[in-house]
Amino acid sequence: MGDRLRTPAGRVTVIVLVLTVVLLIFGVWWVSVSLPTTASNTMKAVKDTMLVFSIAAAPVMALVWGVAYFSLRQKRHSGDEPPEDGPPIRGNNRVVLSWVLVSSLLTLFLLIWGLAELTATSATADSPLVVEVTGQQWVWSFKYPDNGGVSTADLVLPADRPVLFKVTSTDVIHSFWLPEMGIKVDANPGIETDTATTPTLLGTFNVRCAELCGLNHSYMQTTVDVVPSADFDTWVQSNGGTVQ
């Protein structure tokens, strides 16, 4: 064991393993502290995916950086004349094949994971609350067609009920983004696009425009209040709407 660690392959393995652990810790910490609050089932899927990808990426980054660092540390020269030539290694089919195999398997894993999450997050729920979202330079407006056509400039949603957003625009392309709920879809003039989620956390969150839409794009934002179901019904009625 001790002898093995003293070969170049053994020593670089140690460096790569240590780096992997460091990067794993960093990646998990970074994703957890940076992403916004998880306010919907979609956002939970996004967060899980980012954690899984960070874990999968750590050994890859560690391998490349570890080998580069190790070679530099072992035989480093400076000065005007080049050092002697190194060993003439022109290739190694075993290394190449394992590299291709491992990177293909990793890619396959990412793909399967991604497709599974995509299917789960884009599944249409039965009888969702429908909200018509309209972007125009530079405000959002929301209409609840199934609740007597109540409309508002601040989005209000009941907790734990699937919502289907039907998004459009009256002028240029905007992008309807709920950062805490992990959903985004462009608002296109003359076309309706859909996105869906289920809010899972009570509170007030952001609604943003995420596509440069002209002069006041920076200010095109409002809020979404996620309230208990009963409070939502009260809010609808107090705005002259009907409860289903």
Binding site: S71, S78, T107, L115, L118
Partner: peptide, 28 residues
């Protein structure tokens, strides 16, 4: 999503060529 993720395989080959050359080289 498939094609985009596939491109990481040839990109990986380029990384392999670089670190394979650096590996045990006399780094100037």
């Amino acid at each position: 999503m498939l094609t985009t993720e596939l491109i990481s395989i040839p990109t990986g080959l380029i990384f392999l060529a670089i670190i394979g050359t650096i590996w045990r080289g006399n780094i100037w």
